[in-house]
Design a protein around this nucleic acid. Structure first.
Length: 441
RNA sequence: GUGGUCGUAGUUCAGUUGGUAGAACGCUUGGUUGUGGUCCAGGAGGUCGCGGGUUCAAGUCCCGUCGAUCACCCCA
């Protein structure tokens, strides 16, 4: 086998697929910037103690080691590749707190690495597009609404199936569990998170075995988890269960505020869903998960939440709220299914045909005139028969071929076959042909 | 990390109880003496993932290994 095989979990795209990805990332950046988020990049590696703090030892972190490192050289800090963009961002905020202006908002689009076993929609190397807002000391609740609306704006502008954001509040769930007498509310949350996957009976059993719940307590947890609503009516349903706890009340109020505000600005986008829990343990309040309708099995394509204690140097605390879009999880399955494609596989809009090799300098000059006016142009690779040069363009999806002959400069639209004489200094392609576009389904 | 399935031309796949490989599409040449897409006629391309074993004989059976894929775990 001399031909290299792909590496499981490290997806690579073909040119036309990459064009789709590139345009999606451009779109996300544009929307984030429209909302006032500036871009940031952080290094690929973090010290292991940064990555593993907050009890994240379950994370499959890729550890970095120099090939020539001395076996007994313990001088270097151990490094690992980051597995998300939130933890490096929290570190960055602490490191540069004195130079940043708070409240601080940024977006970050970078690859992350996780050593898990790959599967459809799960990769070992994948791209995340992250938006966060952090403040110093206290983080006002309205930011929880704002980040959700940024994501609504970003995702709804993409040519993808309908998406829906499910929100919950950890205070609500944990207050409820505490209110009915369950001690290990963190574990209860993790078990409830499995509901969609393993079903109510299995969850009840896990609750009884895992957090010493009585069958009645497990039943109450399941009833809470079954509540969902696109408006604030969920609060009454929860209160109707008759559990009293101050943390629960706090969570209900906060969640109602988020749902109410987001539903008004982005109708149909958000739904309060009491079974959303999130595995990551640094979330302290609102948690979000976004699913593609009809592709729930992929898992969430965007998620996040509020974290009050992730960034703290002991003296100052920088609470934040943010969401992360799994760009690879969102796109790769749609690309592989052929639901998303590009109109062509190269940026080129015009191919300048070549009658003979001696004409190349003139052709180059002609191409340059088009480029100066922003029209992506390339010159034919060889002075082959015109049929072959047209075929060269056709195979790549290049819409126009430019010929120079006795009649002057002629542009042929190879889709229609129409060929007309034009002035190379004024001719414009139709706007939809200037750059490759994304086509859906 | 645990378990199931799979691994044949560039691609998608055939390959009959073991008898040393085939189709379609794609690619390429020509028909078409410099304007493609249709049509016709030719052509190139495979140590059957890799290694070992059983057999007179292995793409086909067995073992190992690598890779892919699905489920669990966990998550974007």
């Amino acid at each position: 086998m001399s031909r290299p095989q792909p590496l499981s979990g490290f997806p690579e795209l073909l040119p036309r697929q990459r064009i789709v990805e590139q345009q999606v990332v451009d779109h996300l950046s544009r929307v984030f910037e429209l909302h006032g988020f500036g871009n940031l990049q952080t290094r690929a590696v973090e010290p292991m103690d940064q990555l593993l703090r907050k009890g994240e030892t379950s994370k499959e972190v890729y550890v970095l080691r120099r090939l020539q490192a001395d076996a007994n050289d313990t001088g270097d800090a151990e490094l690992g590749l980051h597995f998300d963009l939130t933890v490096p961002f929290a570190r960055y905020v602490l490191e540069n707190a004195g130079k940043l202006n708070f409240p601080f908002r940024r977006y970050q689009i970078q690859p992350v690495w996780r050593g898990e076993r790959p599967q459809g929609g799960r990769y070992r190397e994948f791209w995340q597009a992250d938006v966060d807002i952090v403040d110093q000391g206290e983080l006002p609740a309205h930011y929880e609404v704002e980040v959700a609306l940024v994501i609504a704006d970003a995702l709804r502008g993409l040519p993808i199936p309908k998406v829906r954001m499910h929100v919950n509040n950890r205070k609500l769930s944990q207050g409820f569990y505490r209110g009915i007498g369950i001690a290990d509310t963190d574990e209860a949350l993790r078990i409830i998170d499995k509901l969609d996957k393993i079903g109510p009976d299995a969850v009840a059993k896990l609750l009884i075995d895992g957090v010493d719940a009585t069958p009645e307590q497990a039943e109450a947890c399941l009833r809470l988890a079954s509540i969902s609503a696109a408006d604030t009516s969920f609060a009454d349903e929860v209160r109707a269960l008759g559990v009293e706890d101050p943390l629960l009340e706090e969570g209900l109020t906060e969640l109602a505020a988020v749902v109410d505000a987001v539903a008004k600005e982005a109708p149909g986008f958000i739904v309060a869903d009491m079974k959303i829990a999130r595995g990551l343990d640094y979330y302290t309040g609102t948690v979000y998960e976004v699913f593609i309708e009809g592709r729930e099995h992929l898992g969430s394509i965007c998620s996040g939440g509020r974290y009050d204690r992730l960034a703290s140097d002991g003296k100052n605390t920088y609470p934040g709220v943010g969401l992360s879009i799994g760009v690879s999880r969102l796109l790769v399955p749609l690309l592989q299914a052929g639901s998303l494609d590009a109109t062509r596989e190269v940026p080129t809009c015009v191919l300048v045909a070549l009658a003979d090799e001696d004409g190349r300098p003139e052709a180059n000059a002609l191409a340059q005139r088009l480029r100066r006016r922003g029209i992506p142009t390339q010159v034919s690779p060889s002075a082959a028969k015109f049929g072959k040069q047209i075929k060269f363009a056709d195979k790549r999806g290049i819409p126009f071929v430019l010929f120079t002959n006795e009649e002057g400069t002629q542009i042929k639209d190879i889709r229609s076959g129409d060929q007309v004489t034009v002035d190379a200094d004024t001719w414009e392609p139709p706007v939809q042909d200037l750059y490759p576009r994304i086509t859906a389904e």
